[in-house]
């Protein structure tokens, strides 16, 4: 008997067959399995987001009115606190000079909120001055056109701002909703618990008071606990928007 190392016969055909098996396997994987190439997922994503928004979308219109009329002093105060005033004043003039061009182009809500919002409180007075100064004789048509342009501009700004506000309202609600541990015996599903949440500038929860009980004390406390638990609530990076978030009326209902 020879002691040489035994070599199996049929080495080559076996190797070819082995490779063929893998070729078939990968061909099946590649062709037979319908890999998801079209995007059907984003649709479900947006559904998830919008679920919480209908209650919030009511908020933007009052927000727009509030900003135009009563809040300029407050916001100026805020800006003086946040932004250094000597830099802010020249900036304002620059931004006012070409506001309508920039705004529609920049639709990213989170990235450029500062530029979008800043001219807002300052804008109305200079434009009114413009209207008043160069045309003392009341040309109504020009004035109307200017007013129209102004309104359109404001609407654009408000839309951009509203988008940011909506986004963060949704985020806040989603964060709290995630933290709700629902009591097991919530039988009625169509109940609402409305909370008035007072926020600190950093997003901290100062106070959460029950405004309208859902009728189920366990569910009320569960929501309250969830609000306190999700303590740093997400706020937009723009400090000027905080006024809209200082006091929130949030409504919660049990999931189906």
């Amino acid at each position: 008997m020879s002691a040489t190392v035994y070599r199996e016969p049929h080495r080559l055909p076996a190797g070819i067959l082995a490779l063929a098996v893998h070729g078939v396997f990968f061909a099946l994987l590649y062709l037979g399995f319908s890999w998801n190439k079209s995007a059907s997922l984003p649709a479900t994503m947006s559904v998830e987001l919008w679920q919480s928004l209908p209650e919030v979308t009511v908020a933007p219109p009052p927000a727009r009115i509030e900003e135009v009329a009563p809040q300029p002093p407050q916001e100026k105060l805020l800006q003086e606190q946040v932004v250094k005033p000597d830099i802010a004043i020249p900036e304002k003039k620059q931004v006012v000079a070409k506001p309508a061009v920039i705004k529609p182009a920049k639709m990213k809500p989170a990235a450029k909120p500062v530029e979008v919002v800043k001219p807002e409180p300052v804008a109305p007075p200079p434009v009114e001055q413009k209207i008043a100064e160069p045309k003392p004789d009341p040309r109504i048509a020009a004035q109307q056109a200017a007013a129209m342009a102004e309104r359109a501009r404001q609407e654009e700004q408000a839309a951009a701002k509203g988008k940011v506000v909506d986004e963060y309202m949704g985020k806040i609600q989603a964060k709290i909703r995630r933290n709700i541990v629902e009591p097991p015996d919530v039988v009625k599903k169509d109940i609402h618990a409305v909370f008035r949440v007072t926020l600190l500038p950093g997003g901290g929860v100062l106070k959460a008071e029950l405004k309208k009980s859902s009728g189920n004390a366990l569910y009320d406390t569960a929501v309250e606990r969830a609000i306190l638990k999700s303590d740093p609530l997400p706020l937009p990076p723009d400090a000027a928007l905080f006024n809209l978030f200082r006091e929130l009326n949030l409504s919660f209902k049990p999931t189906e």
Binding site: E8, P9, H10, A14, L17, A18, V21, H22
Partner: peptide
Amino acid sequence: LLLVSVLSWWYIFLKMFAIRD
């Protein structure tokens, strides 16, 4: 895993032929 799989299939066929013979 791919390497191991190719090797094991190779041995599978080798042994199949060897045992049949």
